[in-house]
C-alpha cells in the first residue's frame, strides 16, 4: 500500500548549529493516526514544516501518496505551531478566506464547522474565542477541501483538561469521516497513546523509533510481582528461567502468564502481596529509547 507520507534522509540545519533534523526517514501509512513524538526542540515542527514546504530541506526527499511532495501538497491540511487566525474576523469569515483561496463552495464551511463542533460560535469574532475554540477553528481550516493528509502540530498545547479531552475525541473521529491520514505531533505521551495507531519518536533531530503502537506496547509481556521476601522471590524466578528486573518497589518478570508466576512462588512458600499483568506505557518506551540514544 502506498504510504501517505514517506521521507528519506530528510536533513535541515539552521546556520552552523547542529542539524535540527538529521537524516529523518518517516513512513506514515494511509489512514493511520501517526503520533509524532519528541521533547520540545526535538525537531518535530521543523520536520513538519519541511513536509509542508514551509522550509527547504538541505538533503533528503519527501513523497506524498507516492508522488513528489510539491505535486500533492494540495491534498494536505495543516495546523502548525499556534492556531493562526484573524482575530478581528468571525470564525466563519476566517474559514471563508481559506475557502476562497482554495476555490471551494460556501457549504464547505458548514461541513467543517460541524466536524469540529463550532457551528454555534461561527459568527463570533475569533478574538473572543478560548484557546480550545481557536484550536478547533484551526483544525476546521485545515479540513477545508477534504484533505487526505492532516498534519496537526501540538494540537493540545495550552488546553485545559476539558479541552484536551474534546480534542482527543475530535482526533479519533477524524479518520472515521473518510480516507484521512492524521499526523499529530506532541510531547504529551499519554495523549498520543490514547489516539495513535502508529508512533515515530524524534530525539535531537534523529528518528529513534517508528512502529505501530500495538506492536510497541504488546511486544514485551511481563508480570509485576511483590512478595514478603523480594530477594528470595527473584532468585526463585531466575532459577526457573524467568528474566527479572527490579522496578522501584516491585519485581518485573518477563512472562506472559501471571498465574504461572503466582503458582511458582507460592509453591516455594512465598506470600504474594502484589501480582498484576504489566502493560508497558508509551512513556516507559519513550524514556528507554531516549536513555539508549544518550
Amino acid at each position: 500500500m502506498i504510504a501517505a507520507l514517506e521521507t528519506h534522509g530528510l536533513t535541515k540545519a539552521f546556520g552552523k548549529a547542529a542539524p535540527a533534523v538529521n537524516g529523518v526517514s518517516l513512513n506514515v501509512p494511509r489512514r493511520a493516526i501517526y503520533g509524532f513524538l519528541g521533547a520540545n526542540g526535538a525537531g518535530k515542527t521543523t520536520t513538519l514544516k519541511l513536509v509542508l514546504g514551509l522550509l527547504r530541506a538541505d538533503a533528503g526527499s519527501i513523497r506524498l501518496f507516492g508522488q513528489e511532495a510539491a505535486r500533492e501538497r494540495g491534498r494536505v491540511g495543516s495546523l502548525i505551531e499556534t492556531p493562526s487566525s484573524y482575530d478581528h474576523l468571525t470564525g466563519r469569515e476566517n474559514l471563508d478566506i481559506t475557502r476562497i483561496l482554495l476555490g471551494l463552495e460556501r457549504r464547505e464551511i458548514g461541513r467543517v464547522l460541524a466536524i469540529v463542533d463550532l457551528t454555534h460560535a461561527a459568527d463570533q469574532r475569533v478574538g473572543s474565542y478560548s484557546l480550545g475554540m481557536r484550536q478547533r477553528l484551526g483544525i476546521a481550516r485545515a479540513l477545508l477541501g477534504d484533505p487526505r493528509l492532516l498534519i496537526l502540530d501540538e494540537p493540545t498545547n495550552g488546553l485545559d483538561p476539558d479541552g484536551i479531552r474534546d480534542m482527543r475525541v475530535l482526533l479519533r473521529r477524524l479518520p472515521e469521516a473518510g480516507d484521512v491520514t492524521l499526523i499529530v505531533s506532541s510531547h504529551l505521551l499519554s495523549e498520543v497513546e490514547q489516539v495513535a495507531t502508529h508512533v515515530g519518536l524524534l530525539h535531537r533531530g534523529r528518528l529513534l523509533l517508528e512502529s505501530p503502537l500495538d506492536a510497541l506496547l504488546g511486544g514485551v509481556a511481563s508480570v509485576e510481582v511483590d512478595t514478603d521476601d523480594r530477594v528470595r522471590a527473584a532468585m526463585i524466578l531466575i532459577d526457573a528461567g524467568f528474566p527479572v528486573t527490579a522496578a522501584s518497589d516491585k519485581l518485573l518478570v518477563a512472562a506472559a502468564d501471571p498465574a504461572e508466576i503466582a503458582a511458582l512462588l507460592m509453591r516455594e512458600g512465598q506470600r504474594l502481596s502484589h501480582l498484576t499483568r504489566h502493560r508497558p506505557s508509551l512513556e516507559g518506551i519513550y524514556h528507554r529509547h531516549i536513555a539508549l540514544a544518550a
Binding site: L54, G74, T98, G138
Partner: peptide, 16 residues
C-alpha cells in the same frame, strides 16, 4: 502584522 501576529504564514504559504 495581520499575518505575522498569529503566524498566519504557516497556513497561508501551504496553500496552492
Amino acid at each position: 502584522q495581520m499575518e505575522h501576529g498569529s503566524r498566519n504564514w504557516n497556513h497561508l504559504l501551504t496553500l496552492p
